[in-house]
Design a protein around this nucleic acid. Structure first.
Lengths: 225, 225
DNA sequence: GGAAGTATGACAGTTCGATGACAACGCATC
DNA sequence: GATGCGTTGTCATCGAACTGTCATACTTCC
């Protein structure tokens, strides 16, 4: 889950409309209607933000917040119809990070979620990732993954792949690749073919029918977007 | 300043009442009436939370937020009379962490400040001890533990490990490590290999098959997240 | 079918990283 | 100052991994 939100809200109409609105904003969303289900869902597959109503049947919102907080450092946002200070303070003290009063403006909610995420992520050193379908390239980490699995590449293969990845969908000629990857001014263009072949063995499911690193006959190679 | 709040608000009555209320809650508070003064004050002696009004003479609140954010990761709370979604979203996007509409309930404000601080601390706490699986590094304490057991490292090994740990998952070249750990401009890169080897003897279960401190052939070394 | 372009397996030379040995150094102790 | 211990940097060596070349086989297009 890239950017997952869990919505815990017992009113079906509100829950669905929240979920739809958040999906429109680009979030991946799950919804449950009780605190119990929410806690189970969060343990099973942690979302990276939780939205919770205060008035829930059974275990109420406050207790739900405390339990979520006990397990986890996930940002918690309360969305409640109650607007009195006492509730707001109690929810925040229980461990919530933010509190919005219904009806909520989706744009505001979304902006507040972004603000929370930003704060959470600030510390983690960010590693840029180039993504081509299920092929991921992490240049600074010197790492390449296919379908989530790390693949060991040699330096030449890695540089070749990075070079192609920097120009997604564009054909690079053998000469261009030789110059940029090998820093040769001259050299045998066949060399590129050999390394492309080796690279394909590692990143293509079937190197006979390349789907990512494709040949453009007479021109060169390109990495498919 | 143990727990300092900076209030940037041009209306004297509001500023003073906010400051008094926060002092009652146990905060140490400073107040200024313009964005310019606020920026100067924050640079001179950083508060650990900033409260800012949006409607300020001269440099306005949005710009003030952006500039504060540029310098610093300090939590910023907007306190404004304007309650329309557009302003709220704009303030949050500019870098604010929270937005309250006047008149504010002091108890709520205080609870929100605590929530923000709590999150800030959670983040800081994870910085001061670096954790990589069952490898823990306590930079200030000069201590390293593997599976809870303290491990004795030499100074060079420790600095090398810290340097790698500060860039989790990123490949650092031998040159980079030489410069940062040894402060050499030149020097034999083999030196790094030798110390990595010694470090591995101490922190890896099987130094022949390193799982934490891994080699990226042709590029350098990295500490696995 | 033939030509041009591309793929690939094998091979030998080379590079690269891990490691053990060792001497030099710093530092505390006597 | 002499002694002993832990640490540090250098070096040589070994083995594994990588690289470029070439010959051969395969495609594609005319």
């Amino acid at each position: 889950m890239v950017s997952g939100v869990l919505v815990i809200e017992d009113d079906d109409r509100i829950r669905l409309s929240l979920m739809l609105a958040l999906e429109d904003e680009g979030y991946s969303v799950r919804g449950v209607s009780t605190a119990e289900d929410g806690l189970v869902a969060q343990r099973a597959e942690p979302a990276d933000t939780v939205l919770v109503d205060l008035m829930l049947p059974g275990v109420d919102g406050f207790e739900c917040i405390r339990q979520l907080r006990r397990d986890d450092d996930v940002p918690i946002v309360v969305v409640s119809a109650r607007d009195d200070t006492h509730d707001i303070v109690a929810a925040l003290e229980a461990g919530a990070d933010d509190y919005l009063v219904k009806p909520v403006a989706v744009k505001e909610l979304s902006a507040r979620l972004r603000a929370l995420r930003r704060r959470g992520r600030a510390v983690l050193a960010t590693v840029s990732t180039l993504v081509f379908g299920d092929l991921e390239i992490l240049p600074e980490a010197g790492e390449v993954r296919v379908a989530g699995e790390p693949v060991a590449l040699t330096r030449t293969e890695f540089r070749l792949l990075c070079e192609l990845a920097e120009h997604p969908g564009l054909v690079l000629s053998r000469q261009q690749l030789l110059q940029r990857v090998w820093e040769y001014d001259v050299g045998d263009e066949r060399l590129v073919d050999v390394h492309v072949g080796r690279l394909r063995q590692k990143i293509e499911d079937d190197s006979r029918a390349p789907r990512r690193l494709v040949t453009v006959r007479g021109m060169g190679y390109k990495l498919q977007r």
